[in-house]
């Protein structure tokens, strides 16, 4: 394979045009998924069977089936029902973009809820008891005691999930969306030069994921002041 700088540059330029869509899909589904995941995690830890069981079933179904199946059920499957085709939702559900966002959101919520649940359960029992003994209302208890600690605990796990979602956006290309992988597949089938295209696209994804890792490491650092070295006290002037 001779080195062809011009081809690599053209490929990189073409692939870069897909980055906004990749990021948009990942950002939208991660943030919507986070809300849903939080609700599911609260249902799991509620201790009420009527809330716990549906959340468990949700996790079982969405973590036990391939994301591709979920995307196809939503994008191709739902059109089987005339009731859905004639409903107001059809404006969104007939667009590949919203179907991909919906599938990615539902999928990441299932994995995210487990991470959040782990974070919530990691808060020491005594802390919650102490807060209750002080007479804190449940909402205050969550806001002041549980959430700040759970958030720090779940950050590393959640950064993994965000990276998985960036990779998962590649599946949007199977429902005609031209994000980075979609463009890469098109370029490969036009040029028959899979290795060069792969190198460019791979470098893009690695760069994105590296940036996300750094971002989360910064966030973790900012949220864990107790782990930083204590500031050196100023020496008093004599």
């Amino acid at each position: 394979m001779p080195f062809d700088g011009a081809f690599l540059a053209a490929t990189a330029a073409a692939l870069l045009k897909g980055v906004p869509l990749t990021l948009e899909l990942a950002l939208l589904s991660v943030s919507l998924g986070l809300v849903l995941a939080f609700a599911l995690a609260l249902m799991r830890v509620s201790g009420v069977a009527a809330l716990d069981l549906p959340a468990r079933l949700y996790g079982f179904v969405f973590r036990g089936t391939p994301l591709l199946v979920q995307i196809f059920i939503i994008y191709y499957g739902l059109s089987q029902f005339p009731a859905i085709r004639h409903s107001g939702l059809w404006v969104y559900l007939r667009q590949a973009y919203w179907c991909a966002v919906l599938a990615l959101t539902l999928n990441t919520a299932a994995y995210g809820s487990e991470i959040i649940r782990g974070g919530l359960l990691s808060v020491a029992h005594g802390q919650i008891e102490a807060a209750r003994a002080c007479g804190m209302a449940p909402l205050t208890l969550y806001r002041r005691i549980v959430l700040p600690q759970a958030l720090r605990q779940m950050l590393p796990g959640y950064s993994n999930e965000v990276i998985l979602m960036v990779k998962a956006t590649a599946l949007a290309s199977t429902v005609t969306l031209m994000e980075v992988t979609g463009i890469a597949a098109k370029l490969i089938s036009e040029s028959y030069r899979p290795v060069e295209v792969f190198i460019c696209a791979g470098a893009l994804y690695l760069g994105l994921n590296f940036a996300i890792t750094r971002l989360f490491a910064q966030l973790e650092r900012a949220l864990s002041p107790e782990k930083r070295p204590a500031p050196v006290p100023e020496t008093p002037h004599v």
Partner: peptide
């Protein structure tokens, strides 16, 4: 491990499919 865990699986499948196809071709 960095490369193959950091890049979407779909892209890797395309690489192997088209890569081996062009080799065979």
């Amino acid at each position: 491990t960095t490369l193959f865990r950091g890049v979407p699986d779909l892209l890797i499948i395309y690489l192997f499919y088209f890569g081996s196809s062009s080799l065979i071709g």
